[in-house]
Design a protein around this nucleic acid. Structure first.
Length: 490
RNA sequence: CGGGGUGUAGCGCAGCCCGGUUAGCGCGCGUCGUUCGGGACGACGAGGCCGGAGGUUCGAAUCCUCUCACCCCGACCA
């Protein structure tokens, strides 16, 4: 299955596509641009959901669910928001099918045309703010801290599994606050959660910062983001948190009576991460032998493979492994014992390597005699024989090591691929090679656009607490007070 | 929406130019046997409306027309 697998060197994007499909994470569906997330891929998503969901709840958020369909008129209410999404909305116009005249085909029943078309949500700000209006009267109703786990649809021209699909799964948080200050704090609090999750669960180092006005979410005052660097030197936006100001409150007329008995518009935030994170995970750690998963998100942390010739040996191994598996599970480790007789050990080794299982244990008759077991780690492919006694502690430590090693490896990659340049020629040259390029920019959208046109590079982020320094814009030569992060992006 | 390409077994492909017995190959799949510490091997076997519709012809996977679908490269984007 994983033979004849492309290498990153040969063709990075083919490597990625094959990896996703051959590692059983997802596949293309009958509907163009949409994917089927297979059990192994979905298990990763579930682990991500569990960790994030807990973080949201620990910071006072609650889950709720808003509808998939949004009345078209809602989109008229916030002008920049419409501009941002109108081009990629799926629209429901009818609500019934019928058998055609010839009795063979199913056709749309033209009599069942909707009075007002429904838009399949590309994001839920509009329907949520229309709802919040009814929930909010006084400052006592604030804040509202809600998250929803949902699917959204954006009719993309070109799609890639996990990185950009027409339908994707995500969480979207939508909060309402009394003051601008409080909303800004919420925006940054979530940004920290995202960065923390990326670094500590996904083992993916991220830059935290603000989007330029061109790159921000349509409808936001400011968009903050976490930005990661993939192995091919391209940037990937991994999460966004928006300070929406009073834009949606004004568009949907959401006001509250303050303590001073004054009627004021509510302040808002929204924030989200999506199944794209799985793409980031894959591209950050995996190698030419397949997927590499960080232990904290791996559906299977340890796989145990028996090596035997006879049925008796297998039975003895089954017996031994049962106790090892129980021990590991009692320590909170997820373990799979693969004693299928239909595949050989070597085949299984390759299989689990390809699927990125962090730790593999192999045990055979020789080990039974010596009370030992072979332990192999996926990140470095290193293996050794260790005593079974105390294996639980060895593995707990190893999982921890792997998690840390993956993070540091990715961090090294980023550091080795982050450059400061001061001239336009250097800039063009470095952008072509890839990586994050820190350069001075005059702050205007015009310059930003021209740089994009000429190099395909965009401003990925303006770092938080960005050091201030005098400089000249690499493109226009105009004065600049700080460097911003440029890169070619996914 | 532009530019390029591909549709033949579950998957990957050959055959098509130059029409002609029963449409092949590799992987995978099934049964049996031997194997099993890094992707085993043998024997037998199952599996096809050659993307779809029209046409040319005694005869079409192959030639012609039309259609549909998908992939890659651009414009759009989390």
């Amino acid at each position: 299955m994983a033979k004849n697998f492309s290498t990153r060197e040969e063709n990075y994007s083919q490597w990625y596509n094959e990896l996703v499909v051959k590692a059983d994470l997802a596949e293309n569906s009958a509907v163009r641009g949409c994917m089927v997330i297979k059990p192994y891929g979905y298990a990763i998503w579930e682990k991500m959901q569990a960790a994030l969901d807990k973080m949201f709840k620990d910071t006072g958020h609650e889950n709720a669910y808003f509808p998939l369909f949004i009345p078209k008129s809602f989109f008229n209410k916030e002008a920049s928001h419409v501009e941002g999404f109108a081009k990629e909305c799926a629209v429901v116009t009818h609500y019934r099918l019928k058998i055609s005249e010839n009795g063979k085909d199913i056709v749309v029943d033209e009599d069942a045309k909707l009075e007002e078309e429904l838009i399949i949500r590309p994001t839920s700000e509009t329907i949520i703010w229309d709802t919040y209006r009814k929930w909010i009267q006084s400052y006592r109703d604030l804040p509202i801290l809600i998250n929803q786990w949902a699917n959204v649809v954006r009719w993309e021209m070109r799609t890639r599994l996990f990185l950009r699909t027409a339908e994707f799964l995500w969480q979207e948080g939508h909060t309402a606050h009394e003051t601008s200050q409080e909303a800004k704090e919420e925006t940054l609090k979530i940004l920290d959660i995202y960065a923390n999750f990326a670094e500590n669960w996904m083992a993916v180092p991220v830059l935290k910062g603000m989007k330029s006005q061109t790159e921000k979410f349509a409808g936001a005052i400011d968009t903050y983001c976490i930005e990661a660097l993939m192995q091919d030197g391209k940037a990937l936006q991994a999460g966004t948190s928006h300070f929406l100001g009073q834009n949606f409150a004004k568009a949907f007329d959401v006001k509250f009576l303050s303590k001073e008995n004054k009627l004021e518009y509510v302040w808002a935030t929204s924030w989200g991460v999506s199944t794209r994170l799985i793409g980031a995970l894959i591209m950050s750690h995996s190698d030419d032998k397949g997927l590499v998963l960080p232990p904290k998100l791996a559906p299977i942390q340890v796989v145990i493979i028996p090596i035997y010739k006879t049925d008796e040996q297998l039975e003895q191994l089954n017996e031994k492994v049962r106790s090892i598996k129980q021990l590991l599970e009692s320590r909170g480790i997820s373990v799979k014992y693969d004693n299928r007789d239909t595949y050989k050990p070597g085949w299984k080794f390759s299989e689990y390597e390809f699927k990125g299982v962090p730790v593999r244990l192999a045990i055979g008759p020789r080990d039974l005699e010596n009370n030992s077991i072979e332990i192999a780690r996926r990140d470095t492919l290193h293996k050794e024989i260790v005593p079974i006694e105390g294996i639980d502690n060895v593995i707990l430590k190893l999982l921890d090591d792997i998690q840390g090693n993956l993070y540091h490896r990715a961090l090294n990659l980023r550091e080795n691929n982050t450059f400061s340049v001061d001239t336009w020629d250097e800039f063009k040259e470095q952008i072509e090679k890839g990586g994050f390029v820190m350069a001075h920019w005059d702050g205007t959208p015009e310059t930003e656009l021209k740089i994009k046109e000429e190099t395909k590079a965009t401003i990925r982020t303006i770092l938080m607490n960005n050091p201030q320094e005098e400089g000249k814009c690499i493109f226009s030569g105009n004065p600049s007070k700080e460097r911003v992060v440029f890169a070619k992006a996914y």
